[in-house]
């Protein structure tokens, strides 16, 4: 136990003091947190759906949970069910074998049912394109609010995409 405590105290809070190579993202993350609270006044629940990605986007979405980005500290949480989610974070070109599961997940999500398509494949089909087994971009299967380009996009870009969707949702009437 003392080793754990020593490691924790020795390491300190790496979310707080900006690490040498990440000054900009850190400041950006703080700003996003403030905006999120202003807009939503509460937490944001995200359901991630991999609809056929190469798993590169998942690695970067997972990175959002590390202490540098500390996304839960920003009030954004990944949830286990679409029924708990405000927003779907969808990756991949949608494979034909996943199209039905994606549609059902979308149906199960309550309003505001925001959708952020992550990665070049989610935006346009990417290098996989459309074919006998690929439906291409996410928007070919379910309505998409915001797209985040990149292969894969950096964690901070994904975070920015999530916030853009939330902001648009507030701007929209009703």
């Amino acid at each position: 136990m003392w080793r754990i405590l020593r490691q924790i105290t020795r390491q300190g809070l790496c979310s707080e003091p900006p690490p040498e190579c990440s000054d900009a993202p850190r400041v950006e993350a703080g700003r996003i947190h403030d905006e999120l609270l202003t807009i939503l006044g509460q937490a944001l629940a995200v359901r991630q759906v991999d609809a056929g990605s190469c798993n590169g986007c998942e690695l970067e979405i997972n990175a959002l949970n590390n202490p540098y980005y500390n996304i839960e500290g920003l009030g954004i949480r990944f949830v286990a069910s679409p029924r708990h989610a405000d927003l779907l974070l969808v990756t991949g070109p949608v494979s034909r074998n996943m199209a039905l599961a994606l549609r059902r997940t979308h149906d199960a999500t309550p309003e505001p049912k925001l959708v952020v398509a992550v990665g070049d494949c989610g935006c346009s089909g990417g290098i996989f394109g459309e074919g006998y087994a690929s439906c291409g971009r996410v928007a070919n299967v379910i309505p998409v609010d915001v797209t985040v380009a990149g292969c894969p996009p950096a964690p901070i870009d994904i975070l920015r995409g999530i916030l853009t969707a939330v902001r648009r949702c507030r701007a929209a009437p009703g």
Partner: peptide
Amino acid sequence: GYKHKGIEQRFTELPPLEAYRL
């Protein structure tokens, strides 16, 4: 098999020197 998106077919459609990206 849910993620099957036809990669092996796609390899034959891309320019040979570009397919390393796939």
